[in-house]
């Protein structure tokens, strides 16, 4: 396992000493390849804090983690021997707001910033930039533009390209589709799915969109008030009755299935994954 958390807790420090426990007693492991995970939960449930542990931006205040063989616990920060930087090459983390990372004059310079920091040659980095800009759905002409004159969605894509160019083993995205139009959102989700399927990489997405969770994810993590309350198959999650207790919504396809079921009074094969599967299931149901 590439990422391993053992009873990890993290407490934010504040003036009044008590601090704020952002994540509590989280134990999980994530493979270095072939996973497609979504992380869901209400705002303030500790999702962002959790993923910031995964590339060692934050170190646990309680518990241990093991990231690509590097052991990290609450004492790691004081020992300067442990190099955390290499972990960040292997685990690429895209932040929610692209404004936090764009700073160069041109998009190209911004994209090669990450790879250059990890010792990739300039020529190689530029070659990668030309590839990844297409991967995120923009064309090469964008490379010469200033990142600050782009629209919100374009900025987002550029910031994702900047991480993709580092060629991480595990790609983590904090709400990558927020602020995008539905077309752009679907296109980007396809990109992540391609990265996962074709390159066999692990992708972890923080999202509030249950349709994304249901259609793409092979595994889903649910955070609630800092505690990891569910880790497993999305089908099982949505077949549970009490997801409303966790303030989660039912995906559109399942709503549609339920509506069809009650309206036409037919049996439909449980939990179809996509619209196409639902359509097939309805056909089956009608035949019977």
């Amino acid at each position: 396992m590439a990422i391993k958390f053992e009873r990890v807790s993290y407490q934010y420090q504040s003036i009044d000493k008590r601090g704020y426990l952002a994540i509590e007693d989280v134990t999980l492991s994530i493979a270095g390849e072939g996973e497609f995970i979504t992380l869901i939960g209400e705002t303030g449930s500790g999702k962002s804090t959790l993923v910031q542990h995964m590339n060692a931006l934050l170190q646990p205040t309680e518990g241990r983690m093991n990231l690509f063989g590097i052991k990290i616990d609450k004492d790691t920060k004081r020992q300067k021997k442990v190099k955390l930087n290499p972990i960040r090459k292997q685990v690429g983390l895209v932040f929610q707001f692209p404004e936090y990372q764009l700073f160069e004059e041109t998009v190209q310079k911004d994209i090669i910033f990450g790879p250059r920091n990890f010792g990739v040659s300039e020529a190689e980095a530029i070659k990668r930039a030309k590839e990844v800009i297409k991967v995120v759905g923009l064309d090469e002409s964008y490379l010469k533009r200033s990142p600050f004159n782009l629209s919100g969605g374009e900025k987002k894509r550029v910031s994702i390209a900047g991480i993709l160019a580092m060629e991480p083993d595990i790609l983590i995205l904090d709400e990558p589709t927020s602020g995008l139009d539905p077309m752009g959102r679907n296109a980007l989700l396809k990109v992540f799915n391609d990265i996962h399927e074709k390159l066999n990489k692990t992708v972890l997405i923080i999202t509030h969109d249950m349709n994304t969770v249901y259609e793409y994810a092979k595994r889903v993590l649910v955070m609630r008030e800092g505690v990891l309350v569910y880790d497993g198959d999305p089908l099982q999650l949505f077949s549970r009755r009490n997801i409303e207790n966790w303030n989660l919504e039912t995906p559109e396809i399942l709503k549609l299935q339920k509506a069809l079921q009650s309206k036409f009074n037919i049996e439909i094969d449980n939990y179809p994954r996509s619209k196409k599967a639902l359509f097939e299931a309805v056909k089956e149901g009608v035949k019977q």
């Binding site: 690429g92 707001f97 990372q101």
Partner: peptide, 18 residues
């Protein structure tokens, strides 16, 4: 707060502030 977030974002692109 913002400065802190920017530092984290750049650190995850390999900037080693230390």
């Amino acid at each position: 707060d913002e400065a802190n977030k920017i530092m984290l974002a750049q650190a995850s692109r390999g900037v080693d502030f230390q």
